[in-house]
Design a protein around this nucleic acid. Structure first.
Lengths: 137, 137
DNA sequence: TTACAAATCGTAATGATTACGATATTATAT
DNA sequence: ATATAATATCGTAATCATTACGATTTGTAA
């Protein structure tokens, strides 16, 4: 997912591409990893002084529903990142900088048959630690 | 982990085994799955009218630190369950009743070598859905 | 049973998130 | 380009889970 795809998706669904919405997309594209609502507010404050919580959270939820952003919970705070739209995979997540690395291994195939009579609705596999950059710093 | 083990662990670390602490352990033993702070408060209210948030949260954290309870985040709320002290494993978690089933598969062995130069500090693998009981109900 | 440390209570404070009426902005049709 | 109507944002208050703290009560060990 990139900014232009996201804007197209907005417009195709009757949403407007406002300055703030574009700026939010820019923030996540540049971030290239997980960020919180607070991170976003801090980024927007200089250019959009007094930006409303309403704007922040409404758009984060909108982007999440439209699968422009994906979300996960990291130590009690919701984090967001640009959605990976291609194939199914999981993430290593850096505890320091929030950047992610794709993990192709998915254990679900192996697990399926141990869950006969269960209805599987979803799963989560995440690895946490330090990326090479943060490790050496 | 069972109630008696937990009480021993409390006493061995200089903590007192109060009525409320025993009642909380009883709640989680009987629950046999993930429960929230609110669930616990509702359980305790009848017998301990006006029980303090302080008591609830302080003890949940204490039990978590002492590895009497383990915790996970499920749709934005912290959930707790009796800790499984034996070997490393993961959980299927029922979205309806919170009960869990142990999953022996752990994908980490397979993943390790794809993360050279990364420092791995932890991982999470959870499967969500409906247990056989909730599925047929 | 006394004494004292630890636990609980009652309640206020915090922090993230949600909600809402008033105002401003965007997209579209003219 | 302009007017119009729908949508988005603002400013701020409300909500919800959780944390914090002084005053009081309780558990434990001598």
């Amino acid at each position: 997912m990139n900014i232009n795809e996201a804007i197209d998706r907005l417009k195709n669904n009757g949403y407007k591409a406002t300055k703030r919405r574009k700026e939010i997309l820019g923030f996540f594209e540049e971030a290239d990893g997980y960020r919180t609502a607070k991170d976003l507010i801090q980024h927007l404050e200089p250019a959009y002084e007094g930006i409303s919580f309403d704007t922040i959270y409404r758009n984060l939820h909108l982007y999440n529903e439209m699968e422009i952003l994906e979300t996960t919970e990291l130590n009690g705070e919701k984090h967001f990142r640009m959605n990976c739209t291609h194939h199914h995979h999981h993430h290593f997540i850096c505890n320091q900088c929030g950047k992610t690395k794709e993990i192709e291994v998915c254990p679900m195939d192996e697990v399926q048959n141990t869950l006969a009579n269960y209805e599987i609705e979803g799963h989560k596999f995440e690895i946490y630690g330090l990326c090479p950059g943060c490790k050496s710093a």
